[in-house]
Amino acid sequence: MGVTRAFQTVYTMWLREMLRFKRAKSRIVGSLATPLFFLIILGTAIGSSYKIESYREFMTPGIIAMVLLFSSIFGGVSIIWDREFGFLKEILIAPVNRFFVALGKAFGGVTTAVIQGMLLMIIAMSVGVEYRSLLGLLASIPIMFIIGVGFISLGIALASRIESHEGFQMVMSFLTMPLVLLSGAFFPLSELPPWLKTAVYLNPLTYGVEALRWALYGEPEIPITICITVLLSFAVITTFIGSWLFGRAKV
């Protein structure tokens, strides 16, 4: 009985995210536009100006990771909206375990994030970006999934402590942009000054970018085993912190 209920709770929360996602087509298009501009304009411009061959290919894993980061943190932090618009009460009054509520929310958000990541990957192909192999493309899916779980749970953790949507703006500007810029999405890791290198290596997103680079192009600067270990640990830790904080969150 317990397992069935747990599964049902997770599934219900997942289903809700899917139903909302289904109706958010314009939001999806909008959220893919910016990264595509980055890729096409910045990728081409920097590549030709600085005579770096295939800079666009270099940027692609970084841009995909960026989309994943944005949509998963957003997915987690959307709990703030659920609180503001009251739906959180409907969930919290139900005879369900909050741990599985958080888990379902996370899976729902991750699903939408991965779909967006895959869409971007495919659209990028249409503008000339090439990948190593089909196998690599498939391998990138579970990697995106792990990245998504980690950051959505981080979002849930933050949302459980942040009381208003003003706080949400703070998160978006002081967390997501630094994470993207300090991730090796746009530059190679080898030639950095020590202070920057330290920051980049402390950033979990770096390992996501590198893992995707491995899957799509096979030439990561950090070994894939290390990347996966870091990403998995990050996902597990944030999932527990996120659902623990959500369990104690005020309505």
């Binding site: 599934y11 739906f87 139900a94």
Partner: peptide, 21 residues
């Protein structure tokens, strides 16, 4: 209000039923 207004009335009820097993 505690409805999810991005969903239909029926969907709101359906999710509720699921949450209550």
């Amino acid at each position: 209000t505690t409805l999810d207004d991005h969903l239909t009335g029926r969907e709101n009820l359906d999710l509720h039923g699921r949450l209550y097993g």
